[in-house]
Simulated assay, not measured.
Amino acid sequence: MRRRDVLLAFFALPVLLAGCGGDEEAVRVDLSRREEPTLRLPPRAVTYAYLPQYAHTVSYERHRLLLDYLARATGLPLRQIFPDTFEEHVRMVERGEIDLSFSNPFAYIRMARSGARAFARIIEPSGKPDFRSQIICRRDNTQLRSLDDCRGKRWMAVDPSSAGGYIYALGEFLDHGIRRRDFAEITFAPGPGGKQEKVVLAVFAGTCDLGSVRDGALDILAGKIDLGQIRILAESKAYPGWVYAARAGLSPEITHKVAQAMFALSMQRPDDAVILQTAGMRGIIPATDTDYAPVRALAEKLDLDTATEAEE
């Protein structure tokens, strides 16, 4: 067997050598001339976050069409990110991890202390650029007929930094002479995201006597619970609506492009109407920091420290 292998190799050698033509010119390689390859990174995405008043899936579905539109209209790479809590959202804006923030007014005035600036605000589903807090209870709760009856009761609010879900309601109670110490307890919706829904569900289940949510929050649970069992006990005064803010240091060119694309949306165009209605708004209009002076005045009246999380 070994002799046969040697013979086969001997006869195959000329065939292999024939493949190496002697008339081919050698290619000189000049190793002194080298070009180092460079790593081409894609442009950093512009991050966009919706204050987590609802579950992340709701936040995504509500703003997915809007982000797709903004990316097409501006040519910017946009990416939606999902903070778990109101506090995390505020801190991420302060650290520069969220470029474009969509938040309630109280969260905004906190972020403004680190240089974030309002550039747009929404027309609410009501058709107005403001919104209210709704104080809710079970319809069959005969002990609650007016705000005065809330003394000594258990109140669940959305979050210490929630405007419609806590602070506007707190202001309404104070206007009626009811202070935080007058409640048996004040608790906040647990866990990340979905906090508005959790308040409504807690009231529905009877685990608290009353709750506070922003107007429009009840609609999120339509078809999931019997909303006929929920009664709106009172509403707060109206305050400026939700706001778009750019973090400190974000390129003014980016802010301008996004703002102009937002302002171009119109309920008069069917495609735009779908985008706006899905996002829970009827339009987007210009805003400035001074538009939120009433919210700062309310925070001062309630003795809330806007530099840190609101007192519980």
Rank of each mutant, 00 (worst) to 15 (best):
D303N: 15
F188V: 04
V199P: 02
A202P: 00
M281I: 12
F183A: 07
L65N: 12
R34V: 15
E94A: 00
G96D: 09
D148A: 14
D140C: 13
I109R: 03
G127S: 01
G127H: 12
G241Y: 07
G75H: 12
F263W: 09
M281P: 11
S162F: 01
D68G: 04
R3Y: 03
P286C: 14
L17W: 09
D140V: 03
W242F: 14
K198I: 13
I220K: 11
D148H: 15
R62P: 12
G228M: 03
A217S: 11
Y48T: 13
Y166C: 03
G152F: 05
R3W: 00
G75N: 14
D30T: 15
R4P: 13
E309A: 10
A26H: 09
E311W: 12
D23C: 04
I285E: 12
F82P: 06
D289N: 03
F106R: 07
L276E: 08
K198R: 03
A12E: 11
R4H: 09
A71K: 00
D226M: 01
V29D: 05
G194H: 00
L39V: 11
L16E: 14
Y168L: 08
Q277C: 15
G96I: 00
D219Q: 15
P83E: 02
R79K: 10
R91P: 10
R44C: 13
A163F: 04
R269Y: 01
E35Q: 12
C137V: 04
E311D: 14
G211T: 06
S146K: 13
K195C: 12
R110S: 02
L41S: 11
